[in-house]
Amino acid sequence: MANIAIVSPSASSRQLMADVLRTKGHQVNCMTSWQELDFAPMKIENQALFLLDHSLGDERVINIIADIRRLSTHYRIPIMVISASPRSEDVLRLFNLGIDDYYLKPLDAGILYSRVKRLLDLLPVPAEPHYPDTIEFDLNQLINFEIARASRGNYPFSIIQLSLDVDEAKRRPEHDVQELMNLCYDTLHRQLRETDILIGAENRLVVLCPFSDQTGTRVVMRKIIDHLSRQEADYPFSILEMSYATYPYDGRDKGGLLTYASANKEPLKEFPKSTANTLRHGG
């Protein structure tokens, strides 16, 4: 059923029109003036039809019509004006301004609804997709896929895990923790190659790095840490931990890689020194 907006200064007219439409299952939004409706386009486009009472005043009705046409950019929302004026010049002027129907009072429930239904039938029907609009993979599926691909191609594959120290995170406001994870996501996303995949899972971010051996993975981690450390004063990095695992050296299946990464987590604040030392000594 449709959302229908009624704008009328008359309580009796609003009630009659609303009763007719609600008995047919429609959602009705009654207003005594246009100012009651937020002017945001999304609010306008939530309505499938506008019924405007001409007793609002000629100038006000003209302004409302102009606002609806200006703010409804995705499709044309039908407008019906309900009026007691039979003058042809009034009718023609409003049609030229963009209305879709002109209902001459007095109101009759049956006739009113038949004309409302005609206007609603003119609304565009959205096309239904013939294919899924999203393809979802969970972390386990993605790791299994990359391991199988690395095994067939005989090349390494690494995962980098950035996670929260759960005990430390509990001491922080939830908003701060979420802001930190958002920052980490943005930073990791900027550092990725086209072949890398970034996925969030259970308060952690995991980067899947095809073709990356241990040395290459540590270089990527070094870049991530360098970028995050530039904003250390504004974010509680003490609650972050980082780890990595490389196929086939640290595990030959999903379980082995994730177990190795989880068992070798280090606080992010300790990683710059340990990573630099590892790089200098070649792993």
Rank of each mutant, 00 (worst) to 15 (best):
A5L: 06
V7G: 02
P9K: 00
S10R: 05
A11R: 08
S13Y: 09
R14N: 05
Q15K: 09
L16T: 08
A18C: 09
D19K: 11
R22V: 05
K24Q: 10
G25I: 04
H26I: 07
T32N: 10
T32K: 08
S33E: 12
W34Q: 03
W34G: 02
E36H: 05
F39S: 13
A40Q: 08
P41F: 06
K43L: 11
E45H: 05
N46H: 14
L49V: 04
S55D: 10
G57L: 00
G57N: 02
R60H: 09
D67T: 12
D67Q: 11
D67K: 10
D67G: 05
I68H: 02
R70S: 15
T73F: 09
T73I: 10
H74M: 11
R76M: 09
R76L: 13
V81G: 00
S83A: 08
V91A: 07
L92E: 12
L94V: 02
F95T: 05
F95Q: 06
G98Y: 04
I99W: 00
D101L: 04
Y102E: 02
Y102D: 02
D108H: 10
I111M: 13
Y113Q: 04
S114R: 15
S114C: 13
R115V: 10
K117G: 10
P124C: 09
H130S: 15
Y131K: 08
I135D: 12
I135R: 12
F137L: 10
Q141A: 15
I143G: 02
N144G: 00
F145A: 11
I147V: 03
A148S: 14
A148H: 07
R152Y: 02
G153D: 15
P156Q: 03
S158L: 01
S158M: 04
D165F: 04
D165S: 11
E168D: 12
A169K: 01
R172N: 12
H175K: 14
V177D: 00
Q178N: 14
L183C: 02
L183S: 01
C184I: 01
Y185H: 08
I197A: 06
L198V: 01
I199E: 03
A201Y: 14
E202K: 10
L208I: 08
P210I: 08
Q214E: 15
T217M: 03
R218G: 08
R222S: 10
I224V: 08
I225R: 00
D226A: 14
D226L: 09
H227Y: 11
L228R: 02
Q231L: 15
E232C: 10
Y235G: 02
L240H: 03
M242D: 04
M242H: 03
T246P: 01
P248A: 05
G255E: 14
G255P: 12
G256M: 00
T259G: 11
T259D: 09
A263P: 03
N264H: 13
N264V: 05
K265Q: 11
P267A: 07
E270K: 13
T275D: 13
T275G: 09
A276M: 11
L279H: 00
L279S: 07
H281C: 12
H281G: 09
H281K: 11
G282P: 01
